[in-house]
Structures are given as structure tokens and as C-alpha cells.
Nucleic acid binder design. Sequence first.
DNA 1: CGCCAGATTGAGTCAAGTCAAGCATAGTGG
DNA 2: CCACTATGCTTGACTTGACTCAATCTGGCG
Lengths: 242, 242
Amino acid sequence: MPAENNCPHNAALNCSKCRLNAICLPLALEQSEIVQLDEIVQQGRPLQRNQHLYREGDAFNSIFAVRSGAVKAYSISDNGEEQVTGFYLPGEILGMDGIGQNRYASSAQAMEVSAVCEIPFIKIEELSGRLPNMQKHFFKLLSQEIVEDQRHMTLLSKHTAEERLASLLVSISARNARRNLSASSFHLPMSRTDIGNFLGLTIETVSRVFSRFAKQDLIDINKKEVYVIDIDALKRIALIEK
Amino acid sequence: MPAENNCPHNAALNCSKCRLNAICLPLALEQSEIVQLDEIVQQGRPLQRNQHLYREGDAFNSIFAVRSGAVKAYSISDNGEEQVTGFYLPGEILGMDGIGQNRYASSAQAMEVSAVCEIPFIKIEELSGRLPNMQKHFFKLLSQEIVEDQRHMTLLSKHTAEERLASLLVSISARNARRNLSASSFHLPMSRTDIGNFLGLTIETVSRVFSRFAKQDLIDINKKEVYVIDIDALKRIALIEK
DNA sequence: CGCCAGATTGAGTCAAGTCAAGCATAGTGG
DNA sequence: CCACTATGCTTGACTTGACTCAATCTGGCG
């Protein structure tokens, strides 16, 4: 399991020094603006495995950035089934589904020991009113979540089990690479159940497809430890050919 | 087919007088603010059936509100298949997926003769910087689209063909009711192909399920004309029981 | 050590897909 | 005005990928 350096659980770090800021705060912001953001970001908030960050229906006050660990967002449909709507890795932001109704539309739960930064939304609004770049940034964040979700819709409605799973592996690999972690060797923070609920498959199918990929020498997998042998083949299967 | 009164193709109407503004501009805005919005909204823009409003990859400049008719948004996946990501009826807003990358992530096409209002995004940003209510409104709009998309993910990944189709019928019925049109008798603006592409089903399955619903006396359907006989049963099937 | 939760594997089933034929309606051109 | 074509919709017969049910395996922990 890759260890995080410069202790991610250290609450004293601020955004301007955070090595994840290239992911949280892309381009648009100037140094002076980041300093202002620092003042509203509340750090700390270590979460134990399975602990909830918020629950569906809770009053919405803040969005969160994952600093370390991994968090899943899910909602419970009327028939009681869990639909995982997203996995959030360090540098990624969640909770934006709460803005519309002033209540979170999903629950967020740590899949492993995690730390998050909390950003009160009222402060974001205030800051966005003053700093055009900040406003632009949050509009973009929201829009990108929409695009992500729409891509996921396509995955769910048009793709086979193999394509879905390959797509997830490629995605996690790429997101690890962006954090300067290995793109080929990593730990899956989520259970088979979570993967199934995210991809619209049963755990048995997830397990079978992983086994098939292993048999074809595309990956080595042992429980949650993955070693990607042939990323190009996975990309081809995932139909991410561009 | 229900006719639109107070001519929807009339470009001279402005937001403050538009009878759809309760849908486009819920609550938050004050009269004086709506007047400012009026100044940036460009009207007119009649679209012929099948005409595109924008295409995936086009430079993003504006979001659009449907004034009359019906528009679908879709994207073409790498394997060349069309995924319909949403249907937009009068009063509904589309194009927000373009903000993140400054290019539209999907294409938008009129399914019947339609009219749309164009709202240049740069003006929205400017106005949102000045008017906190306006900023709040657009944050909400974006967030609600996220919630919608996530609900649709659940539909695609966990529900049967009957549940999906019942859900679409209930949704269209409710959206018609919101516009003071009949909730029980309406015209489907989209083809079976579009419905299938939206719901992750083949046209044959869509057709068969409609026939089944008709046989069970839940609806009367003839091509695109629908008469809902038992909306409660459809809601039960759609699992929208709350 | 024994228990439990999570993961794997196998066998059989089924909902929705594929393939194919036929029907209905609208538009075109002679 | 009608025959012809194109497009969209419906229906039937068959196939299949993923699901269900069930058994077994694995590793961590009290």
C-alpha cells in the first residue's frame, strides 16, 4: 500500500502548500486568491473506516475535499438498494449535490481511514461574489461533475461488464498517476460490493470479470491489490481509445 | 395535441412576463433582478425539427432555456453509439455541461419545432458576481442537474425495463402538470429510438413494454399519443412511492 | 481455534437483446 | 391522385450476458 508522505493527517497544512492543490484548484486561481481560500477551509476531520461524512437528507452546509484515504458517495433508492454514485480520491471534491435542495442528496462514507478538508458553502458564495476566478472555478467544478455523471450514465446503459470494469481500472490508474502514485500497481479502496453498486453489476460478476482479466494476463489481482500488466489492452476494452 | 397559448414563438416576450419563469427562475430572484436578467437573455432562435442547437465539442458560450417544443441532449461514445443524456421541455435549461471545458460535452437537437432563449454565460458570470441571488440560483441549477443525473444513474443500473419506462412516463406527466398542461393526456415528443437511448433499452423492448402497459390498462398509447389511465400504478411500478 | 465477512467459483435461469418479418403513416414524384 | 419509398413502430422466435442461488475458500480477529 503506497504510503502518503508529508503527513496527510496533519491538520496544519493549508491549501497554498498542499501538494494536492493542483488537483483541487486547477489553474484559474492566483496565489493571493488561494490565501483567501485558506482562511475558509477547515482542516482536520479524520474519518475512520465506514464513518459517514454526511448522510442523505442532512442539512447542507459544506463541500469537502478528500485529503487522504478514499470516500464513496451513495444514495438509497426507494426500493432500499444502494446506488454508489462516485468514488472520491485525494484531491477530489464531493458534496456538491447538496446545493440545490440545501440537503445532501447522497450519503458519503469513508472506505478507509481518511482525512478531508471542509469548505463551508456560505463562504464559497461570499468569496465567489468577490473573486471572479473563484466563481468561475466553482461553476467549472459543478459542470465537470455533470459531465462525469453523464459519462457514467453511458457506461451503465451501453457497456458490458468487462467494459465497465476495465473503465474503472483505467480511471483509478489515471487518477493515481495524477497524484504521482503508480499507475500500474495500486490498492483498491473499495469492496467488490461497492464496485458492483457503482458499475451496476453483482459482486459475482465483478469477481468473475477480474478473474477473466487475470487469466488473460491483463492484470494481477489479489483481493484489493491490483497490478496492471497491460493498460493499453484495458483501455481498448474500456473503449477509451481517443 | 395541446396548443401553446400566448404564442411561444414570439421573440418579444421577456423573462419577467414569460409564463414559464416560475420554472426557469424559481423563487430566489427579485423583480428588479429579473429585469437585469431580461437584458442579457437573447430570444427568438426558432429551431426546426432535427436542427441542432449546438454540437459536442463546439465552443461553449451560452446556456439555453427551452421556450416551446422539446430538445434532446446526447453524446456519441467512442464506439459510435448515441447516449441520450436528457430531454428538455419548456422552462428547462440545458447546456451547462459546457462550462467545465469551455466546450459542450454533448449535442443538443430539437425533437420538434422549438424555440429557445439563449443566455450568454459570460453575462451570467458578470451578473452572478453582482447579484448574490443570481449566483445562488445558478449554483442551484447546476447542482440540481447533478442530482437528476445521479437519479438517472440509479434508474439505469438498478431498474427493470418496466420501471424505467414507468419512471419516464411519470416524469413527463409531472413536468406537463407543472406547465398547467394535462398530466394524463400528452404527446411524447421523442421517438422510440430516443427513449431507448435514454433509458438504456432497445426500441423493441420499449415498444413491448408500452404494449404491456396498454394491455394492463395502465395507459392508452398510439404511436406518440399517450393517455395515462392509472398514474398511481405507474408510480408504484416506477418505485416513486414517497 | 473457530467465527465471520468478503471473495471466488460453478450451475442453472431469465430479462432483455438480436434477428427477422410485417404494418402504418407521411412524403415524393410521375 | 395513386403508387412508391422511407421511416418508425410493432410483434414473434430465438439467443445470451448477467443474475440468482449455492457451495467453498480465505484471511483477520476475538
